[in-house]
Computed example of a mutant assay.
Amino acid sequence: MLMSNNPRAAKLHYMANGFRMLSPGDHVVCAASGERVPLEVLRYWSVARQEPYASAELATRTLLA
């Protein structure tokens, strides 16, 4: 089960084609903006940095910095 009804941040392990839930929750916090990102809309992350991002723009900006 990937999704949870817990109103707290999940801890995830990010992989190339998905993620594995380490600690249950319903969202993650964007590493670039601090914005809450619901797990069902999470599409952008860095495997190397193990960080989630709220959008492609934020991910690109962070990875190019």
Score class of each variant (00 low, 15 high):
residue 32 A to V: 05
residue 16 A to L: 12
residue 15 M to K: 15
residue 23 S to R: 11
residue 43 R to E: 14
residue 34 G to N: 08
residue 51 E to I: 01
residue 20 R to W: 02
residue 48 A to E: 15
residue 12 L to A: 03
residue 11 K to G: 00
residue 35 E to L: 01
residue 23 S to D: 14
residue 50 Q to Y: 07
residue 47 V to L: 10
residue 36 R to G: 00
residue 10 A to K: 04
residue 2 L to E: 10
residue 33 S to V: 00
residue 24 P to L: 08
residue 17 N to M: 10
residue 1 M to N: 11
residue 37 V to C: 05
residue 43 R to P: 01
residue 46 S to A: 06
residue 47 V to I: 15
residue 37 V to K: 02
residue 48 A to H: 09
residue 7 P to M: 03
residue 26 D to I: 00
residue 13 H to E: 11
residue 21 M to N: 03
residue 17 N to F: 12
residue 47 V to E: 14
residue 7 P to N: 06
residue 41 V to I: 13
residue 24 P to I: 05
residue 57 E to A: 11
residue 13 H to W: 07
residue 32 A to Y: 09
residue 3 M to F: 12
residue 51 E to L: 14
residue 3 M to I: 03
residue 46 S to I: 07
residue 8 R to L: 05
residue 22 L to R: 07
residue 6 N to Y: 04
residue 51 E to D: 11
residue 24 P to E: 14
residue 49 R to P: 00
residue 8 R to K: 13
residue 60 T to I: 14
residue 55 S to V: 05
residue 30 C to Q: 02
residue 43 R to W: 01
residue 36 R to F: 01
residue 34 G to D: 08
residue 43 R to F: 01
residue 1 M to A: 13
residue 13 H to I: 08
residue 43 R to A: 12
residue 59 A to E: 15
residue 17 N to R: 12
residue 6 N to L: 15
residue 55 S to Y: 09
residue 39 L to M: 06
residue 30 C to T: 02
residue 58 L to D: 15
residue 31 A to R: 05
residue 12 L to T: 02
residue 36 R to Q: 12
residue 59 A to S: 09
residue 44 Y to M: 06
residue 4 S to I: 03
residue 25 G to L: 02
residue 39 L to W: 05
residue 60 T to E: 15
residue 46 S to V: 08
residue 19 F to C: 13
residue 30 C to S: 14
residue 23 S to P: 02
residue 5 N to M: 05
residue 49 R to V: 02
residue 14 Y to K: 05
residue 64 L to V: 12
residue 63 L to D: 06
